[in-house]
Structure formats: C-alpha cells, structure tokens
C-alpha cells in the first residue's frame, strides 16, 4: 500500500515539473494605460446608468440631473477619445510591424529569375516572364 502512495505522489510531482522541460516562451504584459482607460470607461458608463436610474426613481431633481449628466457625457467623450488615440497608436505600431514582416518575407521567400530578373511566386517552378526553369 505504501508503495502506491509513493508512486502516486512522485508521479504527480513529476507531472507538475514536466512543463519546465518543454520549449518555452514568455508572455507580454498588457499596456497599463489601456487597462486604466478601460476601467475609466466602465466607470463612467456605470455612473451614467446609475444617474438615470436615480433620476427615474425620483431621487434627483431635474435641476441636479441635467448638469451632472452633461459632465458625465463629456468625461465619457474624453475617455473614448483617449482610448481611440491609444488604439490607433497601437494600430500604427502593428501596421509598421506587419510591413516590416512583409518586407522580410518578400526578401527571403520571393524567387528571382536568374535569367531576366523577374520576381516570381515562392513556389513557382518556371519564370512567368521568360519561362526559364527555376531551381
């Protein structure tokens, strides 16, 4: 019986250790600013919903309700604008990266014809301009 215990215990420990020997990669932390902006967005939306609810339930007078709502809407607008900016920045970075990758691919993979210099598709067997066989 006690052998079984050692066996189960050692196997489970081994199973946990196993991922350490596999090929590994790291994860990238999310951008902080983005998180914070998303938080603020959720908060403002929640505040507007609460405000409208309080008003509908008669806890706020109309004279209180309108200016507060206006200020929330403005804040929501600001947050959305910043989020958009962040996103387009991130997008531009992404596009830059993609273009770079594209260039790399082109260089490494495109087949150039040794005879006429025409670029051919990577898996082409004959040049599409002069018909020379590609290696």
């Amino acid at each position: 019986m006690s052998y079984l215990g050692y066996l189960i215990g050692l196997l489970s420990l081994l199973w946990a250790i196993l991922p350490l020997f596999k090929k590994d990669s790291t994860w990238i932390s999310l951008i902080m600013d983005m998180d914070e902006l998303e938080d603020r967005k959720t908060r403002v939306y929640g505040n507007i919903a609460d405000l409208e609810f309080d008003f509908a339930m008669g806890r706020l007078s109309e004279s209180d309700f309108n200016p507060i709502r206006q200020s929330f809407l403005q804040e929501a607008g600001r947050v959305m604008q910043q989020l958009e900016d962040q996103k387009s920045d991130a997008l531009i970075d992404q596009i830059e990266q993609d273009v770079k990758d594209l260039g790399k691919k082109k260089k490494s993979k495109k087949h150039k014809c040794p005879e006429c210099g025409k670029s051919n598709l990577p898996d082409a067997r004959f040049c599409m301009k002069c018909g020379k066989e590609l290696s």
């Binding site: 199973w15 250790i17 991922p19 350490l20 596999k22 590994d24 990669s25 790291t26 994860w27 932390s29």
Partner: peptide
C-alpha cells in the same frame, strides 16, 4: 514571465 513556469505552478 515564462509560460512553462506558470504552467508548472498551475499543475
């Protein structure tokens, strides 16, 4: 921030 280590902790 290695995935393998996190996976090991999870296991």
């Amino acid at each position: 921030k290695r995935r393998g280590l996190l996976e090991a902790a999870r296991r």
